[in-house]
Amino acid sequence: MRRCIVLGKPNAGKTLFVLHFAEFLHAKEVTIKFQEPVAAPRKGTGVDPEARTGSAACSLDPVSGSDPGAHGRNPGAGFGPSTSEHFKTYKIQDAVRDLTGPRPHTTRCLQSVVLELPAGKGKKTVELIDTSGLTDGIHQDAEIRRAMSQTLSSVRAAHIILHIIDASKAGKKGAVEAMGDVDYQVAAFAQMRGGYCILANKIDLPGARDGVKKIRDEFPGHIVIPISALYKEGFKEVKAFVLREL
C-alpha cells in the first residue's frame, strides 16, 4: 500500500484535513491507527536514558486508548523509532471533536487512516498518515520532540508528501503557524523526491488569498493547491493529485 504523509507546522490543520478528506471520499467512519513513540535508546548513539523516561502515551486518545491489552498493541511494529500501535474507530465528527483543537501540538503521534480511491474499474488504497507538527526551533518538551522525530522518520518512507501551510498566517512573522525554515527545508528535500505538493490551507479566512500568492512566490516550481480543510474546498484537486501519484 502506498503511504501518503501529511506534514507541516503545528496548527496548520493537518488532522482536520485528514479527517475531512476521509469524509470527502465517502468514509463515514475512520479507523485510526495510533503509533505512539516508545522511549527506547538506540544503540550506539549515546542517548541519555534519563531524557527518555517520560510518558510516551498519545495524549490525544481520551477514551480508551490507554488500555494496553484491549487493542492488541504491537510493540516494535512500524518503521523508524520503536512504536507501539493500537487502533480506534471513530465517526468522523467524533474524531474531529476529539483529535483536533485550536492549540498547536494537539497531535502527538502518527495517526494513520486507510482510504480507498476509485481507480479504473476498482479501488486503490492509500494510507494517509497524519503527523505531529514541525516547529522551526527546538521544542523544549521531550515528548513533542519524540513525536516530531516520528514525523521525520516516516517522511523518508512515504511515497507522497502533502505539505500543509497555513495561508492565513503565511506572511505573519512570529506566529507558530507562519512559514519558516522548516517549510523551506521540507520543500527542498521533497524537490528531489517527487510526489510532493503544498496545500495552502485556511483559504476561508480573511487575508488568505494574499497568503496563497505569497506561498506560490516563495515556492516556485512546486504544486500549490489552495484548500480549506474546514469547508472541504479544493479537495477535488488534492484527490486528483494523490490519484496521479499512486
Binding site: 535508546p41 538506540r42 548513539t45 542517548v47 541519555d48 531524557a51 527518555r52 523508524g80 523509532p81 514541525l134 516547529t135 522551526d136 526551533g137 527546538i138 521544542h139 523544549q140 521531550a142 520532540r145 519524540r146 516530531m148 522525530s149 514525523t151 521525520l152 522518520s153 517522511v155 523518508r156 519558516g180 525554515d181 522548516v182 523551506y184 527545508q185 521540507v186 527542498a188 528535500f189 528531489m192
Partner: peptide, 23 residues
C-alpha cells in the same frame, strides 16, 4: 538516519536541520 533522529530527540537539531541532513 538513526543518528540524526536521536540527535533531534535530544534537542540538538531543529526539524529544518534534520531535513537538510536528509537531503
Amino acid at each position: 538516519i538513526d543518528a540524526v533522529l536521536s540527535a533531534f530527540e535530544e534537542g540538538r537539531l531543529t526539524p529544518a536541520q534534520a531535513f537538510s541532513l536528509f537531503r
